[in-house]
Write a protein that binds this DNA or RNA. Structure first.
Lengths: 150, 150
DNA sequence: ATTATTTGATACTAAATTAGTATCAGTTTA
DNA sequence: TAAACTGATACTAATTTAGTATCAAATAAT
């Protein structure tokens, strides 16, 4: 049961990279190389982020993308919603005729509670917070590899 | 972002049905008809539940499957784990070489917290509890359709 | 003006996962 | 010995996810 797909994962990495040096505009190419994300795939992900208003873009030489919103105001939930749709458990809620049996419904009750919980938690994690954490780790652990904390 | 797949969904429905009348042994055919689950698909799901020890089976005429465990001791988390693997966010944790960039790692920290939360919550919901809820709803709402409470 | 660098839009392919079907062998009961 | 079952396993189809490719339009530098 994997929660984040590659779209969301890469989108978050890109947003973090953009937020690291505020105001900086980066090309998809630079981002792709810096974050090791397949270029064309990243292009499409960025286009969705642009459409959704989280980043803005500028064409031509010296163009690229930049955050359009304060990183504190972008949270993981937003990004999940863009690329994976709203947190839900089954189709039951939206296609009621499928949900003709009670067992499914009673299950749904518990599950919607958990859904809400997950949603809230992801809402609480902003890109800004991730950047802060990241910078802190960067300071503290200059010499050792982050993985060693696992 | 859908959390439960059909395997888990059907498995839970089957477990609930089996737990409704304790000690009852039901054939896959009866379950399939009662719960409106494709027969051959349910067969395979039941076989996994058997392998995992949650239900036992008896071959031949009058055979079928029955709960092997007190429904209070089967929780949703167990079932998710059987059919969808452990709750995780990305492959990062298990394939460390993929996780060569810090952004991903810092993200993981927050995300593992949420992962744990989801895991705990699903652990708290037992099949027994779902059955209790279901029976209560059955008592209270005899005349009206459950969906009307949406 | 021309060229290089960039995004916009969109079509396409490939791989993986999920959902569902089918078959045949073996067990048990009547 | 026939009917009603599960055990094991192979197969197909649909959907989702991941990734690639192409061409047009904008911008800046020369």
């Amino acid at each position: 049961m994997k929660i984040l797909n590659k779209h969301t994962d890469y989108a978050l990495r890109a947003l973090i990279a953009l937020g690291m040096n505020p105001g900086s505009r980066m090309s998809a190419k630079a981002l792709s190389e810096g974050q090791v994300i397949p270029y064309q795939f990243l292009r499409r992900i960025l286009q969705e982020l642009i459409r959704s208003g989280l980043v803005n873009s500028k064409q031509g030489v010296g163009g690229g993308v930049a955050l359009a919103v304060d990183p504190e105001r972008i949270n993981v939930r937003d990004v999940i919603e863009i690329f994976q749709g709203p947190v839900q458990v089954s189709e039951c809620m939206f296609r009621k005729q499928l949900c003709s049996n009670r067992a499914n419904c009673v299950l749904r009750h518990e599950i919607m509670r958990i859904e809400q919980l997950v949603d809230d938690e992801f809402s609480r994690v902003s890109v800004g917070k991730l950047i802060t954490d990241l910078k802190r780790v960067g300071e503290a652990g200059k010499s050792r590899h982050v993985h060693e904390t696992n």
